[in-house]
Deep mutational scan, measured.
Amino acid sequence: KYLVLALYDYQEKSPREVTMKKGDILTLLNSTNKDWWKVEVNGRQGFVPAAYVKYL
């Protein structure tokens, strides 16, 4: 498993997404889509914009 760092705040806009705050450390679950990565944060799984996170 990889960890990624939230570069920006992101507010979920659909039930498939998750909210994150700048500085959050997220567990990367799937990065096959170049635009949306599946992550786990605070016990929830969902998608965030790939451009908003970077590998640690």
Rank of each mutant, 00 (worst) to 15 (best):
residue 25 I to S: 03
residue 36 W to C: 07
residue 3 L to R: 11
residue 47 F to L: 08
residue 7 L to D: 02
residue 33 N to T: 07
residue 37 W to T: 04
residue 37 W to N: 01
residue 50 A to L: 02
residue 26 L to N: 01
residue 50 A to H: 04
residue 40 E to A: 09
residue 32 T to C: 14
residue 15 P to M: 08
residue 36 W to K: 02
residue 8 Y to E: 12
residue 15 P to G: 10
residue 49 P to T: 02
residue 41 V to P: 00
residue 40 E to P: 00
residue 32 T to A: 13
residue 47 F to I: 07
residue 28 L to D: 00
residue 22 K to N: 04
residue 12 E to M: 13
residue 51 A to L: 11
residue 48 V to E: 00
residue 24 D to M: 12
residue 12 E to Q: 13
residue 19 T to R: 05
residue 55 Y to D: 09
residue 1 K to A: 13
residue 46 G to K: 02
residue 22 K to Y: 04
residue 13 K to N: 10
residue 14 S to Y: 07
residue 56 L to Q: 07
residue 36 W to L: 04
residue 27 T to N: 10
residue 14 S to H: 12
residue 42 N to R: 11
residue 1 K to F: 13
residue 45 Q to H: 09
residue 7 L to S: 04
residue 47 F to K: 03
residue 34 K to A: 13
residue 27 T to M: 13
residue 8 Y to V: 12
residue 38 K to S: 08
residue 31 S to H: 10
residue 14 S to L: 09
residue 11 Q to G: 07
residue 19 T to P: 07
residue 9 D to A: 07
residue 31 S to C: 13
residue 31 S to W: 15
residue 32 T to F: 10
residue 4 V to T: 04
residue 21 K to N: 10
residue 8 Y to K: 13
residue 5 L to N: 03
residue 9 D to Y: 04
residue 35 D to C: 13
residue 2 Y to I: 15
residue 18 V to G: 02
residue 3 L to H: 11
residue 19 T to F: 04
residue 35 D to A: 12
residue 41 V to N: 12
residue 22 K to I: 06
residue 14 S to Q: 08
residue 9 D to Q: 03
residue 54 K to I: 15
residue 54 K to C: 15
residue 42 N to C: 09
residue 23 G to C: 07
residue 42 N to W: 07
residue 48 V to W: 01
residue 22 K to R: 12
residue 16 R to V: 12
residue 21 K to Q: 10
residue 46 G to M: 04
residue 35 D to W: 14
residue 2 Y to A: 14
residue 6 A to V: 09
residue 39 V to H: 00
residue 27 T to E: 11
residue 32 T to L: 10
residue 46 G to W: 02
residue 26 L to S: 02
residue 19 T to A: 07
residue 29 L to N: 02
residue 11 Q to D: 14
residue 42 N to V: 05
residue 9 D to G: 06
residue 2 Y to F: 14
residue 51 A to Y: 10
residue 27 T to F: 12
residue 10 Y to I: 01
residue 42 N to A: 10
residue 47 F to H: 05
residue 18 V to F: 12
residue 40 E to Y: 07
residue 51 A to E: 11
residue 48 V to H: 00
residue 49 P to Q: 02
residue 28 L to Q: 01
residue 49 P to M: 04
residue 39 V to Q: 00
residue 1 K to S: 11
residue 50 A to M: 05
residue 15 P to W: 09
residue 31 S to N: 15
residue 9 D to F: 03
residue 18 V to H: 03
residue 6 A to H: 02
residue 53 V to T: 04
residue 40 E to L: 09
